[in-house]
Design a protein around this nucleic acid. Structure first.
Lengths: 346, 346
DNA sequence: TTGAAAGCGGTACCAA
DNA sequence: TTGGTACCGCTTTCAA
């Protein structure tokens, strides 16, 4: 059981001793300070390499009161929307030397609260979050606000005022485009499976959808509108209710693609032809919506752009880059445009 | 521009001063040490709440030489296999007070190296990784090994000896089951689209598949075997080669589901009926394989079990729990069983 | 250009 | 049961 000998990590002090200089000099050399001679820099770096030195970021972070880490809390990694967002954000931040501490709340308000507290404990330099469907109190983000640590919400954001930054998809327009499109393809008796109205997302999609139908003179029967968690199971149950009637709908807008896929499956089983008997449009442009048969028309949320906006905000707020204008007084909203992706289901 | 007054976080010293006790006492009270009176504990906790105290984990971590953080490096979050693994791992570790620092390598060896170094700099208590397809040198993990910091590889693991822990899916058996199944459903002229042989995954799936065919007396023509990165584009190109011949294959095994889905799309476009003209079997039980038409037969890798094994190893190695037996001498392999999920494509 | 030393916010040892 | 104090590894003034 030997090998413990070199068990401890090498520190700048070890390097300093080996080179008979001070730790301060080593630190400065390693950080490429101007006021260190090139010669010493070279000597130090060489020795550091040789001794397998790896800086201790924890210690540096403690001293500098920053961690070079950004915290992210999202409901679900497995949702392609979030994993794509995270991917872009992580990669862009990495270019600037930032790392990402990633957490998922499982759409549980309590877990989200705990995670946000923990990220605060880790003294992240900024926090990014898509909140759960059930978060209606935002006080767990208050410590960040109090200490001027940037808080950036994206996608699912507080429905009430909160002094933070927001990157939101234009959900109203998404709903509107969906309604307009259903009207364009001749739907006369639409149904709507929407998410829970506690979320800004579904409030807006709902409003946009209704406005478009209204403008086209199409009536949306309230008994053909459902507000529910957008899971597969819920979708199938709702389908039964929608189609076990004399005059079922001839078009459906679902507020996410998981639900659209479920509806499609249901239709196929029932022998309802999509698109001739039923036009179907989903939301989010989940890759799955493209591989089913027929492929489903959907609303694309421009994830790369949303992620870019998040990163821009972070970098600007941290003073790393001056990418966008940040006005004084917070609650700053960035609206990202959406687009219709037409496929075979309509 | 005021409000900076309470801009600094409250520390144990602030609490200590407010209560006129020592910082040591506060620390102990907060950590529920035995040798502190209940009365003081209560006073301290109350004051901590009142002052909105949040511990600084960075500082605690520095002193204790541990971070209560586990690093994870995977090729892609967007791959459902990895996001599912991560989800389970994160949730289970969280119950034990551990947090997860998540990074993705984008399947780039250089980025992986950097990320692993960075995680080392953050002094994670353990590191978990599914390595890139191109990682053939593992020395970036050596600092962990040298300092007895647990290294756990899963899924894509080093093909050469490395003194770490391994949680691997039984890829040989997966390939074998696929071969056996194709034989069972009467395939006589199979094709095989395999991943790059630099990875343990595909070496094993290849070997298992060949063995099964062999045992069933079926010949695998080498011009119908392709080793390639398993992307959509590559799959379509290979399909063209496979089917632009007089006697195309009547069965295909693809070493992942993305490729299987691509093959299915190709077949549909070409008017090749699956399953009657072509039996198709994929790998991984990606949820997408269940929603295409016809749904694709595939091999399930039992993700929850793999994730559990990873967590068990971490907790045991960190001395938190005694969940499994860790024998002295490393390079410990845990093999997780796979199963055939039969669907309509065969 | 370099060194000495203080300090970031906790924890843990030794004494009292 | 508590307090005093050294220390984790690094950064950063201030002096030399």
């Amino acid at each position: 059981m030997r090998k413990k000998s070199q068990n401890k990590a090498c520190t700048i002090i070890d390097i300093a001793e080996a080179l008979e200089v001070s730790a301060a000099t080593v630190s400065r050399a390693l950080n490429d300070h101007n006021d260190i001679s090139l010669a010493t820099k070279k000597r130090v770096r060489k020795m550091a390499d040789q001794m397998g030195y790896q800086p201790n970021r924890i210690a540096a972070g403690l001293r500098q009161m920053k961690s070079n880490t950004i915290g992210i809390v999202v409901p679900m990694f497995t949702a392609i929307f979030h994993s794509s967002m995270i991917t872009v954000i992580q990669n862009r931040l990495y270019e600037y030397g930032y790392h990402v501490l990633l957490c998922q709340s499982n759409d549980s308000y309590n877990l989200e609260k705990e995670l946000v507290n923990t990220l605060y404990s880790f003294r992240v330099d900024a926090i990014v979050s898509a909140i759960t469907l059930f978060t209606e109190d935002y006080s767990h983000f208050q410590p960040f606000v109090d200490r001027d640590i940037p808080v950036i919400f994206y996608d699912r954001v507080p429905t009430q005022d909160f002094p933070a930054h927001f990157v939101i998809s234009d959900d109203f327009r998404g709903g509107y485009l969906a309604g307009q499109h259903l009207a364009d393809v001749g739907v006369e008796n639409p149904a709507f499976i929407c998410g829970l109205m506690s979320s800004n997302l579904y409030q807006k999609r709902d409003a946009g959808f209704r406005k478009a139908l209204n403008q086209s003179g199409i009536t949306l029967k309230e008994n053909q509108v459902y507000y529910q968690e957008l899971t597969l199971e819920n979708a199938l149950e709702t389908c039964r209710k929608l189609f076990d009637v004399p005059h079922p709908p001839d078009g459906i807008f679902t507020a996410n693609d998981t639900t659209a896929i479920a509806v499609l499956k249901f239709a196929i089983e029932r022998g309802i032809n999509v698109p001739s008997d039923l036009k179907l449009i989903g939301y989010s442009n989940d890759p799955r919506s493209a591989i089913v048969e027929p492929a489903i028309t959907t609303i694309d949320q421009n994830i790369p752009k949303m992620a870019d906006k998040v990163v821009e905000k972070i970098l600007t707020l941290l003073g790393v880059e001056d990418l966008i204008e940040i006005r004084p007084g917070l609650d700053q909203r960035e609206l990202v445009d959406v687009s219709l992706v037409r496929r075979m289901s309509t």
